[in-house]
Amino acid sequence: MIRFDDIVCEFLEIPSFDFKEGRVYKVIFHSDIEKNEFIDLTLGIKRPKRGRVVLFDRDIFNVDINVYYDTLKKVGVVWENGGVISNLKVWENIALPLWFHYGIRPEKIETRVIEFYKNFDMDAQFLSGYMGRLPGTLSAFDKRIICLIRSILMEPELMIYDDVFTGLKSDRVERIREIAEGFHRANPKRTSIYLASTDESLRDLKAEYNIVPDEKGFKIWRS
């Protein structure tokens, strides 16, 4: 699903590594800078000094621009800061990728979104006001939920969770984890990668592979 070939970048060096289909990975970096560089490399945002990144069998830094964006449709990222677009309202943020790529109007996904928010004790009445808000006033948790729903609605084959549990109360961590695990199980080919810059936030997460970058590349052990 993702293959790193002999990567040398500004902060990370990854001699050779494959993230395989259908697995759950937990990667603990030494710092936010390393973690962000990993995301940028994976998604073709930051070109490495050396080596190549293959995402869904495509060399992500050497593909036609349309193929590149098409490939990224198969990837969902739940950002630590929420990754919401500040000048779009909550419902526009949730609906944007579906509306942009498939022309599905926001009204069409309303029921699914309301159903999803029930996991977080938000009913339809509360949501009617909430959906029209701009993200500037929302908490990190609210923004991560927007990002999570937005990604899930696109049914990606690869989900990247960028430090999603950091700074959250344990009940909220538990709910997000349940949703993420349920979503992972729904498609046997789906790969989930949890990233963090400290061990603490992912301690209770069950992953098949645990990874820590070291001087030889990635140190890996199975749970």
Partner: peptide, 25 residues
């Protein structure tokens, strides 16, 4: 200012990861 703040807050990267070309959108 708007685009600068979107860039600094990684909102443009978020758009890219949704498969949305920032030049188009």
């Amino acid at each position: 200012a708007e685009l600068g703040s979107m860039k600094a807050n990684r909102e443009i990267d978020a758009l890219i990861t949704m498969g949305i070309d920032p030049y188009a959108y």
